[in-house]
Nucleic acid binder design. Structure first.
Length: 154
DNA sequence: GCCAACGTTGGC
DNA sequence: GCCAACGTTGGC
């Protein structure tokens, strides 16, 4: 059982979108490190912090769960897709994805609030210049964040 | 819109 | 294998 933080632009897929469906395929990851996390490490049942990025109010917006192991991202084969990769073939897929299920929408735990917690300062998402869209979260960080989510917004 | 940071590409 | 150029991310 592992924990992850996964970034999504709410204009594309928001926590509300995720809560409105049974599960969503996490398509469009085009970074090898993030792909490798999905392909090599993610397991069904892993916990996910659903993070809204590139938006007016960035932060953790909900909790989700990994509900599949990795399988090829079909958008890499679709020449009309923004995520098309001409070097990928069905026989030799380059990009993988997992399915994610929404667990609950939470209050917005803002980036500023996360930064204010010293014991969370080693989280990858808080590092300067961090752009990785999928990052591991420790069990300790997960527990702390669950507690913060249960407290009212400061 | 700006810009720092980072990843990828491609010439050599 | 190096590294400059370029493209992207993402907070502000």
């Amino acid at each position: 059982m592992a924990y992850w933080l996964m970034k999504s632009e709410p204009d594309e897929v928001s926590i509300d979108d995720v809560m409105a469906t049974s599960s969503i395929p996490w398509f469009g990851v085009r970074n090898y490190q993030a792909r490798n996390f999905m392909r090599d490490a993610m397991q069904i049942g892993d916990g996910v912090l659903f993070y809204h990025s590139s938006c007016p109010a960035p932060g953790i917006a909900g909790l989700a769960e990994v509900v599949s192991t990795a399988y090829p991202d079909h958008t890499q084969f679709d020449s009309s897709s923004h995520y098309f990769d001409p070097k990928a073939t069905p026989e030799n897929p380059r990009w993988m994805m997992v399915d994610v299920k929404g667990v609950r929408k939470t209050r917005l735990l803002s980036l500023a609030e996360l930064r204010a917690v010293p014991s969370l300062s080693s989280m990858r998402v808080l590092q300067k210049g961090s752009r990785l869209s999928i990052t591991p979260v420790t069990a300790d960080e997960w527990q702390q964040i669950l507690q913060l989510l249960d407290q009212p917004s400061p």
